[in-house]
Design a protein around this nucleic acid. Structure first.
Length: 479
RNA sequence: GGUCUCGUCGUCUAGCGGUCCAGGACUCCUGGUUCUCAUCCAGGCAAUCGCGGGUUCGAAUCCCGCCGAGAUCACCA
């Protein structure tokens, strides 16, 4: 079967982590079956339209590596891909329905509608417009909404995630097809579009499950075969039991990019939130996801969004990239995350710094806080030094003595590489008769004044002979 | 209120009648890796499988009831 999936967002703002999954899964399914994914912009609600939202959506998909085969920018045989540009198509299909006696103009005023609704509310009954359907209705004309004339009955269908479904006639209603402004509703437009674009799988949030019978009725009236339906469970907010939404502070996906999250980690995390392949694997590349994804293993219950696991995954990915492709592969991806002062140094030096610090990174933006002393002279902080839990055991004269010995030994280093430096540091241990904790902590702090740093020999190697000696001397004088 | 969906460690999950007094991962704790932080490694805490009945020699797994949570009942998608 030729699989065609789609991601059909409405341009009302950014994509957040609560709703990207309905782009990820269609992408995976399409790629897995050598099919295609369509990006369709559902901009029929002019009131909620946000300028620039389409670009935001495109950016997000591109960042995650979810390229679409048809849609804005790339075009395709089913263009246009903006619903607002497909008005004739909807009207054409609407007219078929009218001709068949399955749609009618609804002259009811919104006020009257509210009255009916209120009535039902008081009686604690669900509101069904079809109970108020007028005997006869005027000819359909602009400015009047068009309704579907439903035939209440039961439906049985299969949902790829939820399983076999059943609904009774009580859920069917005369839904609005075309609004009074002439734009189609989602309910109508998506059915026409999916059918005309050849979509084989509709993946969307579970909230559409209860309207599915109405869609089924519409497919039937239109003489269309319904695509496979895939209901995706919600992603829950970190607290409470509500689905994650912008109100709960759901950040946009691109905000995570700016915070130093790798797209690989984001994709990995999101794909595995509510899906797993049954194995104990945790790290999945996009390619592995494409290979292993299956609709049948999508979870039926909602999954809570937990940022700590995302961050853990990000650390794993940082190391995976370096392990597999070397630090040079990571370098271009951290460009934006260096401290300001790093710009004054050349790329080669930054690469050296990165190669000794990368495995401490949880997010790329940690780089900013962790590498300052490689680029600017740290401020000498005597208190920090003498209050350190190891250095505290040494007297001030001892500290001064050790620093001077260190300077004289290090200045005689035959070469300035990590290996040689380690040898010298070991000799220093002998000379001073100090514990590694005391000696190394002292040198490390004197040279960085940072709460932590990479292994001492590596730090010194990257810092270079001149800066190391200068810093040690300066501290010795300050004591 | 009607209709529908869901319910295994704090979280993500494995589990499809016996191999489960429930396995993995995140978090947390302890120890190790010549200093720190991180990584890595080893170990630990943590679910009477929402509750109650039944079916069965045997149930987290099947059936029924209850409870809890969520979705939906828009000229929003």
């Amino acid at each position: 079967m030729n699989v065609v999936t789609r991601f059909a967002p409405s341009p009302t703002g950014y994509i957040h982590i609560g709703n990207v999954r309905s782009a990820i899964y269609p992408y995976l399914l399409a790629k897995q079956n050598a099919g295609k994914m369509i990006l369709r912009i559902e901009d029929t609600d002019r009131g909620r339209y946000v300028d620039g939202a389409t670009e935001l959506i495109e950016d997000t998909l591109k960042w995650l590596g979810l390229d679409w085969d048809e849609g804005p920018i790339v075009g395709g045989p089913n263009a246009p891909y903006f619903q607002s540009e497909r008005m004739e198509i909807y009207h054409e299909w609407a007219k078929k329905l009218i001709k068949a006696g399955r749609a009618y103009a609804d002259p009811t005023s919104p006020e009257k509608l509210n009255e009916y609704r209120e009535e039902c509310n008081i009686k604690k009954q669900p509101f069904l417009y079809r109970n108020y359907r007028p005997e006869s209705s005027p000819e359909w004309s602009p400015g009047v909404p068009l309704r579907f004339k439903t035939i209440p009955k039961s439906y049985d269908w299969h949902d790829e995630v939820m399983g076999d479904m059943h609904s009774g006639p009580e859920v069917l209603d005369d839904i609005i097809l075309i609004k009074k402004d002439g734009y189609p509703t989602y309910n109508f437009a998506h059915i026409v579009d999916d059918a005309t674009m050849g979509v084989t799988h509709i993946m969307r949030g579970v909230e559409y499950l209860s309207s599915t019978p109405n869609y089924l009725a519409l497919y039937e009236a239109l003489g269309l075969k319904a695509p496979k339906l895939v209901s995706l469970p919600h992603i829950l907010a970190p607290t409470g039991n509500k689905k994650l939404g912008k109100r709960d502070g759901a950040k946009s996906v691109t905000e995570y990019r700016d915070d130093g999250i790798l797209p690989e980690a984001m994709l990995n995390y999101l794909a595995c939130l509510g899906w797993n392949d049954g194995s104990e694997q945790e790290i999945y590349s996009k390619e592995e996801l494409i290979k292993k994804f299956s609709l049948a293993r999508i979870q039926t219950s909602g999954a809570r969004y937990d940022e700590t696991k995302l961050v853990w995954l990000n650390g794993q990915w940082i190391r995976k990239i370096v392990d597999e492709q070397g630090v040079a592969a990571l370098a271009p991806r951290v460009q934006e995350f260096w401290p300001e002062s790093a710009k004054e140094f050349n790329e080669d030096y930054r690469l050296q710094v990165l190669s000794i610090i990368y495995d401490r990174l949880k997010t790329l933006s940690d780089l900013r806080q962790m590498t300052g002393y490689f680029f600017t002279e740290p401020k000498i902080d005597v208190d920090m030094l003498i209050n350190n839990k190891f250095i505290r055991k040494l007297s001030e004269s001892e500290i001064e003595g050790i620093l001077k010995t260190a300077v004289s030994e290090l200045s005689q280093a035959p070469s300035w590489d990590a290996e040689t430096l380690q040898q010298i540091l070991n000799q220093l241990l002998d000379f001073t008769q100090k514990k590694p904790a005391e000696l190394f902590s002292l040198i490390r702090l004197a040279v960085s004044f940072a709460p932590f740093s990479p292994a001492l020999n590596l730090t010194l190697a990257v810092l270079g002979r001149d800066r190391t000696l200068a810093r040690l001397n300066a501290v010795a004088r300050a004591i």
